[in-house]
Design a protein around this nucleic acid. Structure first.
Lengths: 349, 349
DNA sequence: GTTTTCTGTGCAAACGTTTGTATTTTTGTG
DNA sequence: CACAAAAATACAAACGTTTGCACAGAAAAC
């Protein structure tokens, strides 16, 4: 707003400016600011004070270029608007930030093309490591190969691909599904349909296996026609539950995602089907709304907090040159709510 | 897994490698890859092919250092786990990515200290611009001043501070509140309490003004004791609604946030108060759960999509050297649902 | 056939750090 | 006081690009 204030010289202060004003060399300043023992305490103080006075901000770009390594970690996720991912991210940050790293987040919106773009961006910016969870669409892994072949540490989580080496941190999807389906069976439901996402993804595949095994262990027949692949959105949930009830005479649903379970509940209510009396529902991921909706929905909670912890610790380990675990499996919990049990108190297995 | 594969040389391909292998100079390669007209088409093709063949990835760090400007845009938000923010982010990305920029996101978790850290990180990494929404805790704006005084373009959105120059893109909070409260009054409610966040934030302040004006315009008395500041979480909502109903004999709530409105609904249900018959509730932000809960909750939808659009376009404008608007106000919509109206069909004002 | 104008490349410096090595200054020892 | 050892600092190259300027050769103009 000041008329005089027009385009003052915006040149940023550099190490050289500090050096000149104190009549030392840039290398001394660099070492002083890095607290290098070769510099005397007295000059260190002098330099630090001057840096403060001039409003010096280190140029991390130059530093990264020279050192060849950056303390920025890239994190690629399908989307940040799902409680699981956003909680994992927060948890990773909580550890990585205090440790001096900083995290940049990129979303793929489930598209392989965006995933490629994201990886390219991070590689070109020479991030120190990449944390990622695959998009649904991804079925070919050349772009992941690029990461490791360029020597950048890669930590995969949740939706991982076994073909690529490096640490994989996953939930116990099999167990989550097994617990869910066993619980439905114990509650008296007998014809349980399964909504699932694209089975090329490990998470859905493993949950599907858990579903099958639970049926088998309970002496129930597995029926292929009860499985609905690509049924993971609220909308597909709405549509598919119709067929499940009307044609297949199902009496329960185990969905690999809360959203399609929600869609199913929408339709079931419209149809006048009583939950949980006539029909049991179990979702997956413990989205916020599962506890809020009516009836509240039984769901599998994946412990994103713990997953984030393990991811961050693995990153730090790798960057310290230590050997990380090849695989980490995080246990899950089944949160039993109204949608699958007459007794309305919350039980945890 | 190959035993022979031990630590092969991971040195990355540079422009110089391409130059050497084609017997030209690095400058020619640089220009060719940048599609500079001074280079002949034939050598361009040669160079592009060789780059592809060698698996060259440009080093954006070096490029940024030399050019002094980066095409990375930093975005600082209170948290990514709120539908409003995560939707704004997605919308910003949708425009910025195709335009060749890439977005890095940092959360503050509502802490001024983290906000400072975030700004420092972005400045040190010499981002091309910063997009930000203030944390609740922030009451002093020196760190924002740093951004503009270093000549980095700053675009504030939603929670903004007028004292700092630069574009501010905000919702029409006054209007959102005014519509909400007027609607409650028209529906027959008379004693309307107001839950709000810290009034130092523009968003809460403006909504509070809207609340007051709506009361006044309807000929209702404004009563200070009906306003609950710092009542923005589910928990505070649960606690404060008790007093509102029991002591103050209120018959409706206009909350500046959906979460505290949700908490209020929790308690009202427990108390046996019928919604909307005995008590009307309007929230703010149109969180996902508002439509899913029972009764569904009337809420103000802030059009994060449009806000993201405007943010991204402003950024592009600034980076192109054009003069952006000083302020943009995005209209809001009141989504009337079950919690404030007997008629269950969705009406939009 | 000489001069002028393009076209296409090369040269070298610069961006702001970091770091191995060299040099100066200080300290300690006999 | 001379000299070695240690401490503190200086020098200069390097990281991988980009870019103003110089320059060679070819085409165009006279």
């Amino acid at each position: 707003m000041e008329l005089l204030d027009v385009s003052m010289d915006k040149r940023r202060i550099t190490i050289k400016d500090i050096a000149d004003s104190l009549d030392v060399t840039p290398s001394t300043v660099s070492r002083a600011l890095a607290d290098n023992p070769r510099i005397s305490e007295s000059t260190k103080k002098l330099i630090r004070d001057k840096a403060e006075e001039l409003g010096y901000e280190p140029n991390l770009i130059a530093s990264t270029l020279r050192k060849g390594k950056s303390d920025t970690i890239g994190m690629i996720v399908p989307g940040i608007n799902r409680s699981f991912f956003s909680n994992v991210i927060s948890s990773v940050e909580e550890i990585l930030n205090p440790a001096g790293f900083n995290l940049v987040i990129i979303q793929t919106h489930e598209k392989t093309e965006n995933e490629r773009r994201a990886i390219r961006t991070l590689l070109r910016n020479r991030v120190g490591a990449i944390i990622m969870s695959l998009s649904v669409q991804t079925k070919e892994y050349g772009h992941l190969q690029e990461i490791t072949s360029k020597g950048i540490p890669l930590v995969q989580f949740d939706r991982v691909c076994k073909e690529i080496e490096g640490t994989k941190i996953v939930n116990d999807n099999f167990q989550g599904a097994y617990l869910s389906v066993s619980h439905l069976i114990k509650s008296g439901y007998r014809k349980i349909v399964h909504f699932t996402g694209a089975l090329n993804l490990n998470v859905y595949k493993e949950r599907f296996e858990g579903y099958k095994t639970a049926l088998k262990d309970a002496g129930l027949e597995f029926d292929e026609s009860l499985v609905f692949e690509y049924s993971i959105t609220r909308d597909t949930g709405r549509r598919n539950i119709n067929k499940a009830v009307a044609e297949l005479k199902a009496d329960a649903l185990f969905s690999s995602g809360d959203f399609s379970a929600l869609g199913a509940v929408d339709t079931l209510k419209e149809m006048g089907v009583k939950i949980p009396d006539d029909f049991g529902v179990v979702g997956y991921a413990n989205e916020q709304f599962t506890e809020i909706m009516h009836p509240s929905m039984t769901s599998v909670e994946q412990n994103p907090q713990e997953m984030g912890n393990r991811i961050a610790k693995t990153i730090i380990k790798i960057l310290n040159g230590e050997q990380p675990d090849e695989q980490v499996i995080i246990p899950v919990r089944l949160l039993i709510r109204e949608s699958s049990w007459i007794n309305k108190t919350l039980i945890t297995y």
